[in-house]
Design a binder for these strands. Structure first.
Lengths: 242, 242
DNA sequence: ATAAAGCGTTACAAATTTATGACAGTATGA
DNA sequence: TCATACTGTCATAAATTTGTAACGCTTTAT
């Protein structure tokens, strides 16, 4: 997937080295050599991941990480800290500030890429702006639209209208298809952490989502797993064999 | 699976950091900042795993670990020690006390999650979300589905529908295949702690499970061991032919 | 052989879990 | 500001799951 990575690093040599490697791996790369500049870039384009040097000329990396974590728009962006030192206190401070991982300089490109991959896999599937297409649905995160392939006329796409929450819910379920999610997992990851909402509310939103999908004969994509939660699945629900 | 993890750690910053990461990974988290508090929590809810700080204000982590190991109800819980030091003597002491693994501070969330996974795989196979495949059955905890390889057509997989308890029961039996479990062991580990249910109820659920497996000619996977309990076994039970 | 113990099986009512529709409070946008 | 769209919560209905009791069969021990 086309991941946009912001590198915040003041040593140009290192910055370019990293950029080169990331580009080679197929990522979009943005570079900044100060927290100030990084902030401006973030305002323009929201990166999918930030590689953040520990020591920056104008502000410590930690501080910048905290800043990112504080704002709604950026708080979900994974951060990997780049640090020359391996002091215990530094690591703890970095992780506390909300870094997802850290890597100590010098590091091999291979190691960096592996960590990036791991962090993305852990944090992002539902955030990557990739179009998800399955089960006759086509969800486009960038345009915030969902289309349905008419079952009789495979060429024709009709759009369906979802409310904000239904959209996020469907997006999440599709991003992790076939997997069961408990209600609280859904609340955490679709509504957001720390929300204070009843579990049962999820049912209602599932219901709303299904109702919309019913209109286009796709309601069986969202399945109930009794005793556990819900699942988006392309496979048929149950096939008792005799 | 939803693993409940108890964090016993007095430094709040670290405690929260760990909690955040575990939650993000889909675990249920309990926190205690002293052995005293931890003990109370354990009395209430039995965690599936304990992350235990080496140094605690009221009692050393080691001592608490020993306490857990001494009592029947808690002695099977895996323990991972969090320690700042890596002295050989400490390791030995920790192992003696019954710790399953160590992790030295500071550690990355990635590392912590990896160790948790490893320990769970080793100690509580039914909690690790791994697909179990044996005897022509394929159970996937993440999608919460069980498939059967049709015996005549090995390519074809058909799904079988299980109720919540049957699913957990089968999962447990498969995770510890070839091993006999008494009814009360099953009640403890499949139904949960502190349940007040008749032993014979297990029979009924075994019956229900078998009935479903009968439909796909797999009923002999769940075997009775007279005088003891039940067992999931791929080997044939005993077939004296006359 | 006979009694006792251990299991398998079934039926059923109670308990739990979901689905659904309605409602009121908020946000959003014209 | 007003109208419309969204949300979260409830109450109630519907559906499934569960634990027990009861009865009969098989194995084991006396």
């Amino acid at each position: 997937m086309a991941v946009t990575i912001l590198i915040v690093e003041d040593e140009l040599a290192i910055q370019e080295l990293i950029a080169l490697n990331l580009k080679r791996a197929g990522h979009m790369v943005l570079c900044a050599d100060s927290a100030e500049q990084a902030k401006k870039m973030v305002n323009n384009v929201l990166p999918d991941l930030v590689l953040l040097d520990w020591m920056l000329p104008d502000m410590s990396g930690i501080e910048f990480a905290r800043k990112l974590r504080r704002e709604d728009r950026t708080k979900a962006i994974p951060i990997i800290m780049l640090t020359a030192r391996i002091q215990e206190s530094d690591k703890i401070a970095g992780l506390e500030a909300g870094a997802d991982d850290y890597i100590t300089k010098p590091f091999s490109p291979r190691e960096l890429l592996a960590r990036i991959k791991a962090v993305l896999r852990r944090r992002l599937p539902e955030m990557s702006d990739e179009i998800i297409e399955m089960g006759g649905l086509r969800l486009d995160p960038t345009t915030h639209r969902v289309h349905v392939y008419a079952s009789n006329e495979p060429e024709k796409l009709s759009e369906i209208a979802l409310g904000p929450t239904e959209f996020r819910l469907l997006h999440f379920l599709m991003a992790y298809k076939e997997r069961v999610h408990t209600r609280s997992q859904l609340l955490d990851r679709v509504w957001g952490d720390h929300v204070f909402i009843e579990d049962r509310t999820v049912d209602v939103h599932i219901r709303r989502l299904r109702k919309i999908l019913e209109a286009v004969d796709k309601e069986n994509l969202v399945q109930t797993v009794r005793g556990t939660g819900y699942r988006f699945s392309v496979e048929c629900n149950e096939e008792s064999v005799e």
